[in-house]
């Protein structure tokens, strides 16, 4: 279920899916389409989609009580920054670090942090929201040039 909303200078859209593993491909396709429309290059698109997949995976694993729960995704884009928010109804639990397989949640967070420019985690009584932001490469280069 997609609902686009374009306003001057910024654009936004939403996608709501059931908390099912089979929806991961749908979430990746949505992220890929949005990243392409935003104008991210191929490498940045891969990284963005990868981080989104990790956030949605985490929401399905830990933020849903069953497969009828919904995962809410929304996009906000301005001229320089693309932000993808994943919201679920669960309470965020710090990933376990013992055991090779149960450490997957910790790996997921590390991957998200490595692959996008900003990860923001917001926890409230109603659920958890992860926001992933990717800045246009040219914006990063401009910032580096200014700094350096």
């Amino acid at each position: 279920m997609r609902s686009p909303n374009n306003t001057a200078g910024a654009s936004a859209s939403e996608l709501h899916v059931l908390a099912r593993r089979s929806e991961l491909g749908v979430a990746r396709k949505y992220a890929e389409d949005v990243a392409q429309a935003f104008g991210l290059d191929e490498d940045s698109r891969y990284e963005f989609v990868y981080a989104v997949n990790e956030a949605v995976t985490n929401a399905i694993r830990h933020g849903a009580s069953d497969e009828e729960d919904m995962i809410h995704m929304s996009i906000v884009a301005d001229s320089e920054r693309l932000t993808f928010a994943v919201r679920d109804r669960g309470t965020f639990v710090m990933p376990e670090v013992d055991g090779a397989e149960t450490a997957a949640g910790g790996r997921g967070l590390a991957l998200m942090a490595s692959l996008v420019d900003e990860v923001d985690l917001h926890i409230d009584p109603g659920g958890t929201t992860v926001r992933l932001s990717k800045v246009r490469s040219s914006s990063i280069e401009t910032a580096r040039a200014r700094a350096g």
Binding site: N53, T57, E101, A103, A104, G105, L111
Partner: peptide
């Protein structure tokens, strides 16, 4: 073309 953290966990569990 794509391998997520849960699959990485499977590879780590294989080593264990």
């Amino acid at each position: 073309t794509f391998i997520d953290s849960t699959a990485i966990g499977v590879l780590a569990a294989t080593l264990e």
